[in-house]
Design a protein around this nucleic acid. Structure first.
Lengths: 222, 222
DNA sequence: TCCACTTTCGTACACTGTACTGTAGCGTCT
DNA sequence: AGACGCTACAGTACAGTGTACGAAAGTGGA
C-alpha cells in the first residue's frame, strides 16, 4: 500500500536522522529510561533490528542525542562583545538543558564528541579568543562558565518538578518531618526562600552568571 | 560450618550497610553499569533475592550510594571563617566526586536525600549563615558554589582518563583528524594547553573556585 | 536473465530487576 | 513440652533489555 515493500533498495524508509529525532522525542517524553531499542522501533513504526542498519549500537544513539542537544544551543558569534555573547550562550544552554534534562547525565560518559558539539565549542572559543583572552585565559574562562552552566542544570534537574509554582506544595510535606529541629538552617531556607509562592530556582541562574561574567576579564598582566 | 545456617534468626549475616558498602566498591571498580543485583549478590557471597530483605529495590541502593558519597565530603564547621571553610569543602567535594564519578550522573535523578546528605547541607548552610550571609544570600551562594563544583566534576568525569600524564597521548590521535583547519581554535587550545605534558585539568578547579569565593561576600546593602 | 547490493526483519541468547512463594532456624508464650 | 510466629535467606519464574547472526525481499545494472 503506502510505503515501500519489506526489504527493498532504492528509497529507504528510515534514516539515521529520523532514528535520532524519534529517540529525542522519546527521551523528552519519558526520560532516558523510556528509550529502549524496542520502544524506539515501535514509535518509528519499524522493527527493533532495523535500527541497527543506521546505528552501530545504542551507545551511538546516545552520542547522537547529545550532539542534537548541543545543536540546539545558540552559537555565539565571534567578533562581537564577548560578554554579551557568553551571556546569551549561557542562558540558551540552560534553557536547552532544562528541556532535555536527561542529557546532563549523558555528558558524564560520552567519549566521542559529535560535529555539532565541535562546531559549538569552536565558535565559543573563537569568541573568547577574539575578545582578547589569551589561550590560557580562554581555557580557564570556558571551564568556569561551562562548569557553572552544567552544574546549575544538574541541580535544576534534581528538583522535584521545577515547573513554576508547585515548588511550595512539593516541599511542604517533606519539611514536616523536620519539625524536630534537627535541621534548623535547612528549615529556615526552605520556608523563607524555597517555599515562597513566587520562588523559582531558575531565576537564580542569572545571579551566578553575572557574578562570573563580572569577574572574568581578558588580558592584563599576571 | 562457618557462618550461621540457611534461614536463621539471631545474628544476621548481611546488613544494609554491608550491601551498600559492597555496592560502592563495585561501582568504583567498574562504573555504575557494573553494579547489578546479581553481581552485587555474588560479590557479597549471597544470592540475589537475599538483598531484597534489606533494600526495597535497586533505586534504594542508588539512593544509599549517593548518601555514602556525601558522607565522604568533609563537613564545614560553622563559626569559623566561612571562606576557608567553603574552600575546604569545595576541594573535598571535587576530590570525592573524582573518586566516584558515577555518582554525578546519579544526582540528576535522585528524589529522596539521605541523612548524611541532609547533615552535610545543614552544616554548609550553618557556616554561611553564621558567616554573615542573609537567607537569600545563602541560597544564592550555595547554589553558585555547588553548581560550579558539580559542573566541574561532570566535565572532569567526561575526560578520557584524567589520571596524570596520559592527557597528551589520548588527545593526539583525535587531533590529527582536525588537521583540515576546520577547527583552528580547538586545535590551538588543544595543542597549546591541553596537550602540554604537565597539563592537568584538575588544577583549573582552584582558579574558578577562588574567583567565585573572591566575588562572594555577605551582607552589605542591595 | 541473473547477479549483487541495499534495506529490512525473525529468531535466539545472555542478561537485567523483581514478584511470589517456600523454608530453616530461633525466641517466646502458654 | 508444644505450638506458633517471626526473622533471614533463597529458588523459581517472568517480562523486559541490547544485540549477534543470518535470512529474505526488492531494486538496479550487466
Amino acid at each position: 500500500m503506502t510505503g515501500a515493500a519489506k526489504g527493498a533498495a532504492g528509497r529507504p524508509e528510515l534514516s539515521r536522522g529520523k532514528v535520532l529525532q524519534k529517540a529525542l522525542e522519546l527521551a523528552d517524553a519519558g526520560g532516558i529510561a523510556a528509550l529502549s531499542i524496542r520502544s524506539l522501533a515501535q514509535s518509528i513504526g519499524t522493527k527493533p533490528m532495523s535500527l541497527y542498519y543506521y546505528v552501530a549500537n545504542k551507545e551511538e544513539i546516545l552520542d547522537g542525542l547529545v550532539d542534537l542537544v548541543f545543536a540546539e544551543i545558540s552559537t555565539p558569534q565571534a567578533g562581537s562583545e564577548w560578554k554579551e555573547q557568553m551571556r546569551r550562550r549561557a542562558h540558551s544552554a540552560r534553557e536547552v538543558l532544562r528541556r532535555h534534562p536527561w542529557a546532563i547525565g549523558l555528558l558524564e560518559s560520552r567519549k566521542a564528541p559529535g560535529p555539532e558539539t565541535l562546531k559549538h565549542h569552536e565558535a565559543t572559543l573563537a569568541t573568547l579568543r577574539e575578545g582578547g583572552f589569551t589561550v590560557e585565559q580562554t581555557a580557564r574562562a570556558y571551564s568556569l562558565l561551562d562548569s557553572y552552566i552544567y552544574g546549575f542544570a544538574l541541580q535544576e534537574a534534581g528538583l522535584p518538578i521545577s515547573g513554576g509554582e508547585p515548588m511550595a506544595q512539593v516541599a511542604a510535606p517533606i519539611m514536616e518531618r523536620f519539625a524536630t529541629g534537627e535541621y534548623p538552617y535547612l528549615v529556615e531556607i526552605a520556608t523563607q526562600v524555597v517555599m515562597q509562592p513566587d520562588y523559582d530556582y531558575g531565576n537564580e541562574f542569572g545571579y551566578g552568571l553575572e557574578l562570573i561574567l563580572e569577574a572574568l576579564q581578558p588580558a592584563s598582566a599576571a
